[in-house]
Computed example of a mutant assay.
Amino acid sequence: MDKLQAMQVFTRVVDCNSFSGAADALHMTRSSVTTIIQNLEAYLKVRLLNRTTRRISLTPDGAAYYERCARILAAVEDSETSLSTAALPRGKLKVDMPGSISRLIVVPSLDDFHARYPDIDLMLGVSDKPVDLVQEGVDCAIRMGNLPDSTLVARRIGTSEFVTAASPDYLSRFGEPKSLPQLDAHVAVNYFSRRNGRIMEMNFIVDGEPIEVRMRSKLAANDGDAYLQCGLQGLGLIQVPHFFAARHLQTGCLVEVLGQWRRAPLPVWAVYPHNRHLSPQVRAFVEWVSERFEGCHLLRKNASEAMDHVRHDSVRPLVTDLVHS
């Protein structure tokens, strides 16, 4: 029995909470994974996993063995990495990110990534909502906003500023608001969360404090592209990440309003599971994508400075799913 492979298979079954998921992640058949776990338990003379038709769970012996396996596998990978620091990272890398970030920031620069790391086979997942990294076998993901999942290791790679905007047609009919009280005479296109259905009201930072403004509205959307199109069609004021609307702002199809009271910027993170060693492929991708975000004019270079002047305990985790479109 290959003990190292058995440890790798066992830890992946636990991480995925599934024999099938582990088989997919390791590019093995389910029967091979099952056989390896059975042989491992026979060799150790203990049951590592409780199995039912619907779920699996660790036994006390399995939990203790899992922790030891995780440390051993991390040490092995550290040793291999230390002996090959001069070599370029190689192998498969599965990443996940929101559609707008993929479409507008990452994909246009992938030729640079492949030129720098020609031996990495990138599997780019584009999802409308955050995926379970462990269950889906994702090595790394890009997420925006406050992170609800404390089990993930997160590295901040950028900051995204928001703009409040309207089409020239809308402004010709309603006029341009010059102050927040003037919003009473305007209408908004609302955005509602696809996760909980909650309407996300307009929000502005005034003297370092977030101010929520409830506006008149007869239209709401839960898709970022549809929300943007509503603004372009003159159906109301919208509030979107700057990179999402940058092209339309440059061409004049959208006009920014109330620029002195922008919504609080949101951090952008690269995240990966805490119990998964940071592989050379993940490290390379995180470093590369950090560079792309740092140099990306679409995010506005003053966003990080603006965020430093906002009371972080008062910033609510709004509109984070607007970019997942």
Rank of each mutant, 00 (worst) to 15 (best):
M1C: 08
D2A: 08
A6K: 10
V9A: 05
C16R: 15
D24C: 11
M28K: 13
Q38L: 09
Q38A: 11
N39E: 09
A42Y: 07
L44E: 14
V46W: 07
T52L: 09
R54F: 14
R55W: 13
L58D: 09
P60W: 11
D61Q: 15
G62L: 13
G62D: 10
G62F: 12
G62W: 10
A64M: 14
Y65E: 14
C69A: 15
A70D: 11
I72N: 12
L73C: 03
A75N: 09
V76F: 06
E77P: 04
E77W: 03
T81N: 12
S82I: 15
S84A: 14
T85G: 14
A86L: 15
L88F: 13
K92M: 12
L93D: 05
D96S: 07
P98Q: 07
S100G: 06
S102W: 10
R103M: 10
I105F: 02
V106S: 00
V107R: 07
S109Q: 10
F113R: 00
A115N: 03
Y117Q: 02
D121Q: 08
M123P: 00
V126E: 05
S127H: 13
D128C: 13
V134F: 11
V134R: 14
Q135Y: 13
I142A: 01
I142K: 00
R143M: 07
M144P: 01
L147D: 02
P148W: 01
S150Y: 08
T151N: 05
V153H: 10
A154M: 05
I157W: 08
I157Y: 08
T159P: 03
F162T: 01
F162E: 01
A166G: 01
Y170D: 01
L171G: 06
S172W: 05
A185F: 15
A185I: 11
H186L: 15
V189H: 01
S193L: 05
R194Q: 14
R198T: 14
M200V: 09
M200N: 10
E201S: 08
M202V: 01
E209H: 07
E209G: 04
S217A: 07
S217R: 01
A220G: 02
D223R: 08
G224N: 03
D225C: 04
D225T: 09
Y227Q: 03
L228R: 11
L232S: 06
Q233G: 12
G234A: 11
L237T: 07
L237I: 15
I238G: 02
A246H: 12
R247I: 00
G252H: 09
G259F: 07
R263I: 05
A264H: 06
L266C: 05
P267M: 05
A270E: 01
V271E: 02
Y272L: 00
Y272I: 04
P273Q: 02
P273M: 01
P273L: 03
R276A: 00
R276Q: 06
H277R: 08
P280S: 12
V282F: 00
R283M: 11
R283Y: 11
S290E: 03
E291V: 03
R292V: 12
R292T: 07
F293L: 10
E294I: 02
G295W: 07
G295P: 04
A303L: 04
A306K: 15
A306E: 11
R316Y: 09
R316D: 09
S325M: 06
